[in-house]
Computed example of a mutant assay.
Amino acid sequence: MEYLRKYELWDTNIYNPDKATYIGSYNNGEMPGSFGYYEETLYKNEEDEFFIINSAVDSDEGDLILLPDEEELLAWAENHLDVDLYIKYFGAVSE
């Protein structure tokens, strides 16, 4: 998965969560603010591109913008979104 530091593209508004549609988020279950805590939040921008903001308490790099390819995106969504949200953005899962 490609990633960028938030400050590298934040000003372009392409990967700015304030200008994108929030879809859903996931955290690792640790207490917010504690060492090891992280949260990933999925957004869709105006160009219909999906990106994930990874926020980790113990990261020296700050928030990261993750740019998943299609396979990584679908895997993330399948593991972290409820069924209705998954279907809304990615369609029904075929077996």
Rank of each mutant, 00 (worst) to 15 (best):
D48I: 06
E49H: 04
M31S: 10
T41M: 05
E49T: 14
N13L: 05
N54M: 03
Y43G: 00
A56W: 15
S25E: 13
T12M: 02
T41H: 07
E71L: 05
L64A: 05
N28D: 11
S34C: 15
T12Y: 05
A20C: 12
F51C: 04
G33F: 12
D58P: 06
E70Q: 15
K19E: 08
I14R: 10
Y38D: 10
S55T: 03
I65D: 01
Y26G: 00
E30K: 09
E39D: 13
F35C: 00
D18V: 08
S25P: 11
Y15S: 07
N28R: 04
T41R: 09
E46P: 06
Y26F: 12
E71C: 00
L66R: 11
N16G: 02
T12I: 06
E70H: 14
E39P: 00
F51S: 01
Y38I: 08
Y15Q: 09
L42Q: 09
A56T: 15
F35K: 10
N16D: 15
L67D: 04
P17E: 15
S59R: 12
G24Q: 12
E40W: 13
I23A: 04
I52P: 01
S59K: 06
K19S: 10
P32Q: 03
N45D: 14
G29V: 04
L64W: 03
I53G: 04
A20Q: 04
L66I: 10
L64P: 02
D69H: 12
L42W: 14
T41Q: 13
N27A: 07
S34G: 08
N16C: 13
G36P: 08
N13Y: 12
Y38R: 02
G62F: 10
E49S: 09
Y22N: 00
N16A: 13
D58R: 06
V57H: 10
A20W: 02
E49N: 08
G24T: 00
D48L: 03
G24V: 03
E39R: 12
D63S: 08
D58Y: 04
D48H: 15
T21G: 01
G24M: 10
I14Y: 10
E39K: 14
S55L: 08
I53L: 00
I23C: 03
Y26D: 05
F50S: 02
S55D: 07
L67Y: 03
K19D: 11
F35N: 02
F51W: 13
I14P: 01
N54G: 06
E71H: 12
T41V: 06
K19Q: 05
L64H: 07
G24R: 06
G29K: 11
I53E: 13
V57K: 02
D48A: 09
P32D: 11
N16S: 11
D60T: 04
S25D: 14
I52V: 05
D63F: 03
S55G: 01
N28A: 05
K19T: 07
N54E: 13
L66D: 00
Y38L: 03
E40C: 03
E30V: 01
E49K: 13
E71Q: 15
N45I: 07
M31E: 15
E49P: 00
L64E: 05
E71W: 09
T21F: 07
Y15N: 06
Y26M: 03
T21W: 14
A56P: 00
E30N: 11
E47N: 13
F50W: 06
D48F: 09
Y43C: 04
N54R: 15
